[in-house]
Computed example of a mutant assay.
Amino acid sequence: MEELEPPSVIMAALATLSPPRLTDLSHSIFSEVHQHRRRLTFILSSPTLFSLTLRHLNSLSLSHKSLLLARFLLSALRRLSRPFQSPSKLLPYHPSTAAISPQDLDAAVLLLLLCEVRQHNPAALRTPITKWRATLCRIYSESLLTISGLATGGGGALIPYIDTVVRCWKFVGFVGSCGGKVRREVAASPMAVVELPSVAVGGGGGTVECVICKEEMGEGRDACKLPCDHLFHWLCILPWLRKRNTCPCCRFQLPTDDVFGEIQRLWEILFKVGSTMCTSDGDE
Score class of each variant (00 low, 15 high):
Gly154Lys: 07
His94Asp: 15
Val109Pro: 07
Arg55Pro: 04
Pro92Gln: 02
Lys89Gly: 04
Val259Gly: 06
Tyr93His: 15
Glu209Cys: 10
His56Pro: 03
Thr276Ser: 12
Ser143Trp: 09
Glu268Ala: 06
Arg71Gly: 10
Gln85Gly: 11
Ser141Ala: 10
Thr276Val: 02
Arg126Lys: 12
Gln85Ser: 06
Leu158Val: 07
Lys214Glu: 13
Val117Ser: 03
Gly202Asp: 12
Pro87Gln: 07
Pro122Ala: 01
Arg79Met: 08
Pro95His: 02
Arg184Trp: 14
Phe84Thr: 00
Gly206Met: 13
Gly149Val: 05
Glu268Phe: 03
Ile100Asp: 01
Arg55Lys: 12
Lys89Asn: 10
Pro19Met: 08
Glu284Leu: 11
Ala124Thr: 04
Thr41Ser: 15
Met277Val: 11
Thr130Trp: 11
Trp240Val: 02
Lys131Tyr: 14
Gly180Leu: 01
Val165Thr: 01
Leu150Ile: 04
Pro239Met: 00
Leu40Asp: 12
Ser26Met: 09
Ile147Pro: 08
Ser141Glu: 15
Val273Lys: 00
Pro7Phe: 00
Trp169Cys: 11
Gly153Arg: 04
Leu238Asn: 10
Val273Leu: 01
Arg167Gln: 14
Leu74Tyr: 03
Ser75Thr: 15
Ser61Met: 11
Pro83Arg: 01
Leu231Met: 09
Arg265Met: 08
Leu74Ala: 03
Val175Ala: 06
Arg55Asn: 10
Arg78Trp: 11
His94Ile: 03
Pro47His: 14
Met277Cys: 15
Thr135Ala: 13
Gly203Pro: 03
Leu14Pro: 00
Gly179Glu: 12
Gly261Pro: 08
Ser280Leu: 11
Asp104Thr: 02
Ala13Ile: 06
Leu62Ala: 15
Phe72Ser: 14
Leu68Arg: 00
Asp257Val: 08
Arg183Leu: 05
Met191Asp: 14
Pro227Tyr: 00
His233Phe: 01
Ile43Phe: 13
Ile43Gln: 09
Gly274Cys: 04
Cys178Glu: 05
